[in-house]
């Protein structure tokens, strides 16, 4: 059975490299090991979204039972999106679960993920905090997502006001990523983020 999986990935790999999306730099696939069980994907942030200009790296694990079961995909690049965990990069997308069909390929999976970046599903969230912000404060969400894109995915936007708030926290000895997560989760309210950070520090001690 593993033979079918490897054979198919080999064929898909050849095909995806030749596809026009790769030529346009929208998607990319690379091999991680020789056995075709693990791959590295890359998608470009779609235009007219807060992810524009960013490059998002994905971990793709191909199960023995592929293509009868979906590949396991998660974001390695940190991203602020209602359907993607800001902590683990786990993705909530139906085609990677029960809506998988054997005729889908690496190419269609990557294109679906790119489509997910342009059209979030806040009613079926993976990250509840992000989804709440997306629904209740869309402008705040946009700013946060853009900021994360510029920091983690090489996006172009520089947001000095947000950077300043993070610096305020890092000056207090808080790790930068933790500071960013706390601020993002509390709609960039410096006081509440600080409170929450020190509460968790105290709880640990």
């Amino acid at each position: 059975m593993a033979n079918i999986a490897a054979q198919r990935i080999k064929r898909e790999f050849k095909e995806v490299i030749k596809s026009e999306e790769v030529a346009k730099c929208a998607i990319k696939v690379e091999l991680v090991n020789d056995s075709f069980t693990e791959l590295k994907g890359e998608i470009a942030g779609p235009p007219d979204t807060p992810y524009e200009g960013g490059n998002f790296v994905l971990e793709i694990k191909v199960p023995e039972t592929y293509p009868f079961n979906p590949p396991k995909v998660r974001f390695i690049t940190k991203i602020w999106h209602p359907n993607i965990s800001s902590v683990t990069g786990a993705i909530c997308l139906d085609i990677l679960k029960d809506q998988w069909a054997a005729a889908m390929t690496l190419r269609t999976v990557l294109l679906s993920l790119q489509a997910l970046l342009s059209a979030a599903e806040p009613d079926d969230p993976q990250d509840a905090v992000v989804a709440k912000q997306y629904k209740e404060q869309p402008e705040m969400f946009r700013q946060t997502a853009k900021h994360w894109t510029s920091v983690y995915a090489g996006g172009p936007a520089k947001m000095s006001d947000l950077d300043d708030k993070i610096r305020r926290l890092t000056d207090m000895g808080i790790e930068e990523h933790n500071a960013r997560v706390a601020l993002s989760s509390y709609n960039w309210d410096l006081e509440r983020a600080t409170e929450q950070l020190f509460m968790t520090v105290m709880a640990k001690n």
């Binding site: 079918i4 039972t65 009868f68 079961n69 029960d98 069909a101 054997a102 005729a103 889908m104």
Partner: peptide, 20 residues
């Protein structure tokens, strides 16, 4: 053999792998 295995994988949801 491929289609048979697909149908066996999800006996409750017998859908065409291409168009569902």
């Amino acid at each position: 053999p491929c289609l048979y295995q697909w149908l066996e994988t999800r006996p409750a949801r017998q859908l065409c792998p291409v168009c569902k």
